[in-house]
Amino acid sequence: MSAVADKYPVLQGLGVEVISVSVDSHFVHKMWNDHELSKMVKGGVPFHMASDQAGNVGRAYGVWDENQGIELRGRFIIDPDGIIQAMEVLTPPVGRKFSESIRQIQAFQHVRASGGKEAMPAGWEPGKLTLKPGPELVGKVWEVWKPDME
């Protein structure tokens, strides 16, 4: 979570709010912030650290691990209409790649700004070619986009 806290200004620049969730109590969140995270991230954690001690939120999102009584690393991108646009769930030993979350947020924001008229090919990043699905593009993607453009 320190990686997300550290990059929070980038998210704010994109108009993104963050909520972190674990089964720890909000009191423990405070201790973690005060005694460790604030030493990694200047000013401490800048977003809501939610507590889900019964695992009910985790169950609803499919990240509750019944055997260990914890929540798996689940990351959800939710748009301004409250719709989940992307989800990624990892088992505990591997951390997320923050830049990939940013890339996906930028791609979904671009789709939204285009009114759904544009689609993002594999590996899309801001500034790269987008596709405009329509009758003219059917069977012609190969003319404008190739895998080495990823």
């Binding site: 998210l11 972190s20 973690w32 798996l72 690393r73 689940g74 990351r75 939710i78 301004p80 409250g82």
Partner: peptide, 16 residues
């Protein structure tokens, strides 16, 4: 947070 983009992150536990 309706009207804003939200990044919702679950993780196994504090002090991990």
């Amino acid at each position: 947070f309706a009207g804003k983009w939200v990044l919702l992150c679950f993780y196994p536990g504090d002090f991990t």
